[in-house]
Design a binder for these strands. Structure first.
Lengths: 359, 359
DNA sequence: TCTCGGTTCGTAAACGATTACAAGAACGTT
DNA sequence: AACGTTCTTGTAATCGTTTACGAACCGAGA
């Protein structure tokens, strides 16, 4: 099917292209031409060429959304949130995941953006370095970042307080009587990796918890497998009655490793994840997690972008999304009698199992 | 930062716009102009206006990918697969999820496509009706469908044999000695819903299994919650020693409902899902599932589209992706001693638990 | 009938790139 | 020195819209 143009419609309706354009854009025209043009346009299956339109109106009506990794449900949620808002505002979404091929992906994605196929950009980078900040600052289109930025950077962004989130989790565990709280982090040098470690450190200090290297593990990826491996390692080399992982996938991996080692969750080890993704409901036991409002952050980012598109000189805005602990069975309080020597992860399950009757 | 145009570069380099364009597109030019133009272009931060370029070269270098629902991991996998291939081929991805707001979403998505902002379309519709087929057949750009099409439809597509997939699952359960196999389907009228029910029916007949309405449940959504609710209902009203759900989310919901009812998986009820999404690894027990190669289908779809873009008159092609059973613990054979009256789902767990020692 | 707001419409100039064409430059050959 | 080739370059047309501008038209008031 060959595409017809304004000129075709104009010829068919016996009017000028200007009239056709006006009718199709809802500008005033006589009833007669209006109906005639619409009829012909419809019968010809006319659809405007968006490239030509964009060229003329100086807008693409597209927003570019760049996330790191589609495999991470937190990013998917952000996309969902952003998409809903942007679509309602009449924008299409141009999507890229910059994936693990860090440089290549990011480079092309941003280079491409600066080549002007989008009116705005929403980006949630795993790693935020000064080079990236510069690139974004000089982008020819409005940019909204989901995630932290150096103080004073003139870019709208929406942040969540990962540090606080981690502290909420630690408080929760602490209130449940857990004292030896292990922590599995993702790679340092990434935004979440760094912030979450800071949070853990501050909570350990604030709550007077044991501060041992042996309770901390760094992994190279925020993945199920890395979480499981780190937990397995912790079980062999350390003693802990609770475990916090830097995201839900790692937490669930850790829960499985713990279960495989014959330890029960939450009785013996309470587990908390971060992101409150849907998988928390699906795991067993359901995973307690810190919600960072991914979907909502996606929405807010989209709204910030729309705001800036409408008022390019509006003051720079940073929106905070407060973290929130969502308690589920993986930290349920029942069956835990408090921290003592027998909570060593090396214990056999037998002793703990017997004790269950007491509560 | 204001965008500069070809003319700006031309002025700066003291040459014509044609020369600039040629240099930037790698066409032959003298060393001197080449260097000069590149230098100026770089210092001006020149980037071509893609709208203007598209208008002239009659290509947008964008592919539209339309899926139903980002919340479904199977779709996300498809996107990942497609994205990888398309990006390597130099295309950007314009993404829309048509979501649950069926008509609205689909309508706008497709209408938008026909408005020519993409060179091709990959679509994986949940429901395929004749109206949609017509729309796609008359699309002004090449289309690839992921999913079934009416026989003889002149559209490239990649299909998987859901029916066969269900039969693989049923064979697997049958070989494990399960006889009363319950089935939880998604909504009829959807492609997967219909195909999977057909598969179940044919397997029941082929294997001589009990064919009872009470063993089948239809839900309104392929979701965790619906799966759980349907399973809870089955447990109360029916007796079964195995359960097949139309996708992994439903299967995991069902597993949880089963666990809540005090029945053990797989000992008492073996559970199988469909899609082999990552969550199968994360559930406990890990879920046996039928892989339909979502990611691979995404890749194939992208390749089919690239092929057609290269050769618009190539013969219509339909690629099949074979389903494959991935056995995990939710159907592990140990502990099951065969179907007999005591396998009623109404049994208390006690009897079954005692029996475990025998194997 | 003439004039005067107000509509309605067509002409034509953009928007920023690509590219056919022809002209000019450079060079080798005879 | 004249000619033919090959390279390099600029001019200008073009892609399909949108929209400023002014012409034509219409009915009403004088």
């Amino acid at each position: 099917m060959v595409r017809s143009t304004l000129a075709d419609v104009a010829r068919g309706a016996g009017v000028s292209v200007a009239s056709v354009s006006r009718v199709l854009n809802g500008l005033p025209a006589s009833i007669a031409t209006r109906d005639r043009v619409r009829e012909v346009a419809h019968s010809l299956g006319y659809a405007p060429d968006l490239a030509a339109r964009s060229l003329k109106i100086r807008r693409t009506e597209q927003i570019s959304v760049v996330i790191d990794d589609l495999a991470n449900p937190a990013y998917v949620s952000m996309m969902q949130g952003a998409e809903a808002v942007l679509r309602d505002a009449g924008y299409r979404i141009q999507f890229s995941s910059i994936g693990s091929d860090s440089d290549l992906g990011l480079g092309t994605a941003l280079h491409a953006v600066s080549r002007g196929y989008a009116d705005g950009l929403i980006i949630c980078p795993l790693r935020m370095n000064s080079e990236l900040v510069e690139t974004l600052r000089h982008a020819p289109i409005p940019v909204v970042v989901i995630g932290g930025l150096p103080r004073g950077t003139a870019i709208d962004n929406v942040v969540t307080d990962s540090r606080l989130g981690v502290n909420l989790a630690m408080d929760h565990l602490h209130q449940l009587g857990r004292r030896r709280i292990a922590f599995i982090d993702g790679p340092l040098g990434t935004n979440p990796g760094d912030r979450r470690l800071e949070g853990y450190r501050s909570a350990v200090e604030r709550l007077g918890l044991p501060d041992e290297d042996g309770l901390r593990r760094l992994t190279t990826e925020f993945s199920y497998a890395k979480g499981a491996a780190a937990a397995a390692d912790l079980i062999v080399n350390s003693q802990f009655d609770a475990l916090l992982a830097a995201n839900d996938m790692m937490a669930i991996g850790a829960m499985h490793a713990i279960a495989r080692a014959g330890l029960r969750v939450p009785h013996r080890v309470a587990v908390v994840g971060i992101d409150d993704s849907e998988m928390c409901l699906y795991s067993s036991p359901p995973l307690t997690s810190v919600s960072l409002g991914s979907r909502h952050r996606g929405k807010i980012a989209a709204r910030l972008l729309l705001r800036r598109l409408a008022r390019p000189d509006a003051p720079i805005k940073r929106v905070r999304e407060a973290p929130r602990l969502v308690a589920r069975d993986s930290t349920s309080a029942r069956d835990f009698t408090g921290a003592d020597d027998s909570t060593s992860a090396r214990d056999s399950t037998g002793a703990r199992a017997k004790r269950r009757g007491q509560t």
